[in-house]
């Protein structure tokens, strides 16, 4: 299987006062194309920090993280932005939609950065909104949507550029059970149909039930890494 992320002896420290807080300790991991994996652990276990480094939003203190052939620590700011722009999608706990823009414009935004033509942008946005079932909300603003609809817009925004890897940080934290399952089913379908890899940071049992690989983190270390059969499909 094609490896898309290689993590070797990753350590991440943050300065705290006169000392350091070690968020990640000597992590070794590998992710292949098409995975539906989760970084699972309690708050402060290092899930989000690891996700940020894989997403080239942060750099390791030591060790190496290679994402689609690019060593994160050696990327310039411009190269890291290019990697995120072309290959990575992000989904956040709070959706983080731009409030003054419509659903259509929020989803279109990543394509503007890719300098696609207007007609191509339009066809891709409409197609993506159809995947997530929001074609009737094209002209709505985020304030007019429910939490589940907002998260579906966020998924569409992450998926519209057809990324190789989507990084989702607690995507169901603000959703009720029904919406959480709907969102996860949508992501699972996209994973299966488009072979897009998903890496979640979560401690939500509803998410865990959908994962095919669970990586358990505690105090910045990987304590378990196992392939599982999803209990919810």
């Amino acid at each position: 299987m094609q490896s898309i992320v290689e993590v070797q002896q990753l350590t991440k420290k943050f300065p705290v006062g006169t000392g350091f807080f070690t968020a990640l300790k000597e992590i070794d991991l590998s992710f292949t194309r098409g995975e539906f994996a989760g970084l699972v652990g309690p708050s402060g276990s290092g899930k989000t920090t690891l996700l940020n480094i894989i997403g080239s939003l942060d750099i390791p203190s030591s060790g190496e993280v290679v994402v689609m052939g690019n060593s994160v620590s050696r990327l310039t700011a411009r190269q890291a932005a290019l990697l995120r722009k072309q290959q990575l999608g992000f989904i956040f706990q709070n959706y983080n939609l731009l409030p003054v823009y419509t659903v259509y414009e929020n989803v279109e935004f990543p394509l503007l950065l890719l300098n696609l033509s207007a007609s191509e942008r339009k066809s891709r946005v409409l197609e993506t909104l159809e995947w997530v079932g929001l074609t009737d909300k094209i002209n709505s603003r985020p304030a007019e949507l429910s939490g589940g609809e907002c998260q579906r817009v966020a998924i569409a925004r992450a998926m519209v550029k057809r990324p190789v890897l989507v990084l989702a940080d607690e995507p169901t934290a603000n959703l009720d059970s029904v919406n959480s399952h709907n969102i996860l089913k949508t992501m699972l379908r996209l994973n299966e149909e488009l072979k897009t890899s998903f890496i979640f940071a979560t401690h939500d049992e509803k998410v865990i039930a959908y994962l095919r690989r669970i990586i358990r983190l505690e105090d910045g270390r990987v304590v378990a890494d196992e392939q599982v059969t999803p209990t919810n499909t």
Partner: peptide
Amino acid sequence: GEFGLRLAIGETKHE
């Protein structure tokens, strides 16, 4: 926050 999102999506700080 908006800038953070835009950076995550792939804009550079310069942009």
